[in-house]
Simulated assay, not measured.
Amino acid sequence: MELVEQQWQEIVEKITGPELWFDVGEIILKIILIIVVASIAVRVGTKLVDRVFRKRDRGPFKITERRENTLKKLVQNTLSYVVYFTAFMMVLDTVHIPIGALLAGAGVAGLAIGFGTQNLVKDVVTGFFIIFEDQFSVGDFIRTASVEGTVEEIGLRTTKILSWTGEVNIIPNGNITQVTNYSMHNSIAVVDINIPYEVDVAQVEPIINDLLQEMPNQYTELVAAPEILGVQMLDASHIVLRVTAEVHPMEHWRMARILRKDIKAKLDQEGIDIPLPRMVMYTRDKANAETDGKGV
């Protein structure tokens, strides 16, 4: 009984003594200092990365703006991961947790769970090749994995794509097996114009062509003057003329709308109406009368 009371008294004295609280306070201060230093290191490193890529034109290595945005974001994310992981290890060491044994155990555990992380490895490897081969970059408009939108971020594991309606799609890189990139080359705007059969096509084409030749002076998105390809289709109530225009990447939707508006205004100015659907109706009595008249 006396031994138990003695041990209890020692525990109480240790808890209430100043030495324990000095040690706890010292540990807390070290942890706070590590977190603050890590945060400052990430901010300073991020600014240094921005400065390095901002001066890319002066250096010996030339990279495009698309690739710059991708690599800059990747380097900044990697820097954050490394700094915070190092800070986490330092915190564990501060609270007297053996890091060596922890890393050794993590290595053994990594071998055990390696077979269950095949998708993770696949995502990282695919992400590396996406960046290395420059399949697409931040700011590109792409379609992949049934998702279409602007690339916001490319990581080693996932890619973030912003749809034009505002949704952010986070796709594992391993699911990106086929990519359609709309931003690497010039786009083509395609516009079909309906012309009534009553109007001579040879009369309409010069009118539209004169308008198209003037458009490059008005719209900087155009690489060259739009062209009339000719009659695309003969419909039931109208003729379809096709116009194409080569524009800068991702400007084809906007320019197609402009082409429709300007061509419609030009045709209205020349007194050429856009055809309306037609429907011919026969009454049964009239049809029978015509049949009887033919038989007489």
Results as ranks from 00 to 15, higher is better:
Leu111Val: 14
Leu111Tyr: 05
Ala112Thr: 05
Ala112Val: 11
Ile113Tyr: 08
Ile113Trp: 09
Ile113Asp: 04
Ile113His: 01
Gly114Leu: 12
Phe115Gln: 06
Phe115Glu: 10
Phe115Trp: 10
Gly116Ile: 01
Gly116Tyr: 09
Gly116Asp: 07
Gln118Cys: 01
Gln118Thr: 14
Leu120Asn: 10
Val121Met: 10
Val121Gly: 03
Val121Lys: 09
Val121Arg: 14
Lys122Asn: 12
Asp123Lys: 11
Asp123Pro: 04
Val124Ile: 14
Val125Arg: 14
Thr126Glu: 08
Thr126Gly: 03
Thr126Val: 07
Gly127Cys: 09
Phe128Asp: 03
Phe128Lys: 05
Phe128Thr: 09
Phe128Leu: 14
Phe129Gln: 11
Phe129Glu: 15
Phe129Asp: 15
Phe129Arg: 13
Phe129Trp: 12
Phe129Ser: 12
Ile131Val: 15
Ile131Cys: 10
Phe132Trp: 15
Phe132Ser: 12
Phe132Leu: 13
Phe132Ile: 14
Asp134Ala: 10
Asp134Arg: 13
Asp134Gly: 11
Asp134Ser: 11
Gln135Leu: 15
Gln135Asn: 15
Gln135Thr: 14
Gln135Ala: 03
Gln135Glu: 15
Gln135Cys: 02
Gln135Pro: 03
Phe136Ala: 02
Ser137Arg: 03
Ser137Met: 02
Ser137Asn: 15
Val138Asn: 10
Val138Trp: 04
Val138Cys: 05
Gly139Leu: 11
Gly139Thr: 08
Gly139Trp: 07
Asp140Ala: 02
Asp140Glu: 07
Asp140Tyr: 00
Phe141His: 10
Ile142Leu: 08
Ile142Gln: 09
Ile142Ser: 11
Arg143Val: 09
Arg143Trp: 13
Thr144Glu: 10
Thr144Gln: 10
Thr144Arg: 02
Ala145Val: 08
Ala145Ile: 00
Ala145Tyr: 12
Ser146Met: 05
Ser146Trp: 06
Ser146Lys: 12
Ser146Asp: 15
Val147Trp: 04
Val147Pro: 07
Val147Leu: 01
Glu148Val: 05
Glu148Asn: 01
Gly149Val: 08
Thr150Gly: 00
Thr150Glu: 09
Val151Met: 09
Val151Trp: 02
Glu152Ala: 08
Glu152Lys: 12
Glu152Cys: 01
Glu152Thr: 14
Glu153Ser: 11
Ile154Gln: 04
Ile154Arg: 04
Ile154Ala: 02
Ile154Glu: 06
Gly155Pro: 03
Gly155Met: 13
Leu156Pro: 11
Leu156Cys: 01
Leu156Gly: 13
Leu156Lys: 04
Arg157Asn: 08
Arg157Leu: 15
Arg157His: 11
Thr158Pro: 04
Lys160Leu: 12
Lys160Pro: 02
Ile161Arg: 03
Ile161Cys: 08
Ile161Met: 08
Ile161Tyr: 02
Leu162Glu: 13
Leu162Tyr: 06
Leu162Ser: 07
Leu162Thr: 02
Leu162Trp: 07
Ser163Ala: 02
Trp164Met: 09
Trp164Glu: 13
Thr165Cys: 00
Thr165Gln: 02
Gly166Ala: 08
Glu167Ala: 06
Val168Ser: 04
Asn169Lys: 12
Asn169Phe: 11
Asn169Ser: 13
Ile170Pro: 06
Ile170Ala: 01
Ile170Cys: 02
Ile170Ser: 03
Ile170Met: 05
Ile170Phe: 03
